[in-house]
Nucleic acid binder design. Structure first.
Lengths: 167, 167
DNA sequence: GAAGATTGAATATTCAATCTTA
DNA sequence: TAAGATTGAATATTCAATCTTC
């Protein structure tokens, strides 16, 4: 309505099919997913900053490498973190400059390079972990049960599957 | 442990408590949430690029405003999109420059400014929507049921709640 | 002084092009 | 020629400082 008003820039901009599409359960789930991710990320980031710690991205890198025998190929790491290769190169550059990681080259295939965790990186990870964990406990444990968390993980992994492999 | 090895940079870097914390259901849920978000975002972004459309962030802005009577305060919009105010100002700048949005000022309180949807913005939204919808259908509808999507939304909203308000 | 929004400097991320090795 | 990684240019985002209005 209100199409007679002269001020209204663009009322009723979406036809009924569009509105339906916007409010479909899957669309709603996606929007909630995106905003929950942003909100929780922000909280964790804030907690790290207040504790004088490096950004969340550094934690992601350190923890991912630590869980993979403290050594990962750059390509694998980029895929695990779901960021571009170029972006990962520069991110790792910063961690190397900070003395947390070291680059190593594969002997059998000189094209590949590894990012390896240094003791200082492991130590920092140990300091960041409780802060991140505490924040996640606040966000998750306080609001959903363990069973719900596991179900959430399962559902999300199925969604992610198609998004990645296209199969 | 493993301090006798000369090659290993940092093996067994996490003690058992840390490993436990990393693999806790809530930590796992968070990691899956973050990576699913990145993966699906990437897919949608790619589809938009291939169709010669603007980035996903533009879609988020346009659709959020469209769902709120085609007019939102900058602060509300920033909160809805979970980005900083400064970031939103520049994002909206780009959309304004592209002729998709218009700024309007509140008469009762001159401090607040509105972002209003222009017809060109509504038209573009109509073109982007089917592309985004199709990609989300591929990611969601193909892998989870409507009931699961609704449950996912509910679970995520509870997680988000604490992350935002702290209550 | 406080709230809302914007700006500029610094940082981070992407995309395309390049380099090296298989 | 292709795969893996890196670099540089362009873009986007944040943080702190500023401006305006309440």
């Amino acid at each position: 309505m209100a199409e007679t008003a002269t001020e209204t820039a663009a009322t009723s901009v979406l036809d009924s099919a569009d509105v339906e599409a916007c409010n479909a359960p899957h669309q709603l789930a996606w929007r909630t997913l995106a905003r929950t991710h942003a909100a929780v990320s922000g909280r964790v980031q804030e907690a790290l900053t207040e504790a004088g710690m490096p950004p969340l991205a550094w934690f992601e890198v350190l923890s991912t490498i630590a869980e993979n025998d403290s050594r990962m190929k750059m390509g694998e790491l980029a895929e695990a973190l779901v960021i571009t290769r170029g972006g990962l190169t520069k991110l790792v550059d910063r961690l190397v400059k900070a003395g947390l990681l070291e680059r190593a080259f594969c002997e059998s295939d000189r094209r590949v390079s590894y990012a390896t965790l240094l003791p200082a990186g492991a130590e920092l990870l140990g300091e960041m972990l409780p802060i991140v964990s505490a924040e996640l406990e606040t966000a998750f444990a306080a609001n959903i049960t363990v069973a719900e968390a596991e179900q959430l993980t399962g559902t999300l992994e199925r969604v992610r599957g198609t998004a990645c492999s296209g199969g």
